[in-house]
């Protein structure tokens, strides 16, 4: 490659020594793009502090993003009067924790079996699991409602097991159908593949069972994959609303997203909508803020390899 000295002069300073003096212009595009991504949420949060009439008026100008006018936390107190928000939050946290927790176990085992073990039917199993990625939940919701209402369950009443029918109106109907996840299995399988096979073989020679290899070798080496899957399965469960509307009738078992529906009355109280949506969004943002470094680096090292 024939190179002109000019191209080196251009590329060099941005990458090398004298960057201190020239670093601030690099923030300009970063800040510009940041504004694009943050403004709707800024609008949500600012609106949650304003009375309804002002929200509807401010939405026509940049006042929508500014803490101007009559600010108060009235909307928040109204929200807690209208909706059992803390109860909903507890339900959601519980359901999300269950789905993520069991999902990590079930899907990582499947990912292990599909990536590191040789067995007949593996190819077909992998194809079927990947094919399920194309089924959006909404399209099978109706048969699913009918079906979960017919499923049996064992309940312990005074320590005596009794067989009951129907999963509606429970926590389990919000949890169990979402534990197995093709995308998670895929990510685990990809990550496990990158761990050297020799480790397994050495352990086999030492007499370790395959299950021991999974538990003692593969899992401890796969922290980033577990972190990635945890975050990616956390989000859809936190945000699910169609399914709970259909299968959860008791107010005491409803998750946070159903609470949004409470505010669309004859006269929608927009301030309260904004306060409630802030209430259910901010925990996720904080969670992400705390774990974002781990998340990005874990995806990076989980090395998404097609």
């Amino acid at each position: 490659m024939t190179t002109s000295p000019t191209s080196r002069q251009i590329s060099d300073p941005t990458h090398r020594p004298s960057r201190r003096s020239r670093v601030w212009p690099r923030y300009i595009p970063l800040v510009g793009v940041a504004i694009v991504f943050i403004f709707p949420l800024l609008f949500m949060f600012m609106s949650s502090l304003k009375p309804d009439a002002q929200i509807l008026a401010d939405v026509r100008s940049f006042r929508a993003f500014l803490p101007v006018g009559e600010l108060s936390t009235d909307n928040y107190s109204a929200v807690f009067d209208r909706v059992p928000a803390w109860r909903f939050m507890a339900n959601t946290i519980f359901v999300v924790a269950m789905v993520v927790g069991f999902g990590l176990i079930v899907n990582s085992m499947a990912g292990f079996a599909l990536s590191r073990l040789q067995w007949r039917g593996r190819g077909i199993a992998l194809s079927i699991i990947l094919a399920t990625l194309i089924v959006p939940f909404e399209t099978i919701a109706v048969p699913m409602v009918w079906w979960v209402a017919k499923l049996p369950w064992i309940e312990f009443q005074d320590f005596i097991p009794t067989l009951t029918t129907g999963w509606l109106n429970t926590y389990r109907v919000q949890i169990i159908p979402f534990i197995a996840n093709a995308f998670s299995i895929f990510l685990f399988a990809q990550y496990f593949k990158s761990i050297p096979k020799e480790l397994d073989e050495a352990a086999r020679v030492d007499g370790a069972s395959w299950f021991t290899i999974y538990r003692k070798i593969i899992v401890p080496l796969s922290g980033p994959a577990f972190a990635t899957v945890a975050i990616l399965t956390f989000l859809p469960v936190w945000n699910s609303f169609l399914w709970p509307i259909m299968v959860v009738q008791q107010e005491a078992l409803r998750p946070v997203q159903v609470g949004v529906q409470y505010f669309f009355q004859l006269e929608t109280a927009w301030g309260e909508v904004m306060a409630y949506t802030s209430f259910i969004t901010i925990p996720v943002l904080l969670f992400f803020l705390v774990f974002q470094r781990a998340f990005v680096s874990s995806i990076a090292s989980a090395g998404v390899k097609g």
Partner: peptide, 20 residues
């Protein structure tokens, strides 16, 4: 048992389908 009006019909229809 109170339901939010915005999604009440969906809840009830689903319960009807489930026989509940």
């Amino acid at each position: 048992e109170s339901f939010p009006q915005a999604s009440y019909n969906d809840s009830v229809v689903a319960a009807a389908v489930a026989g509940d």
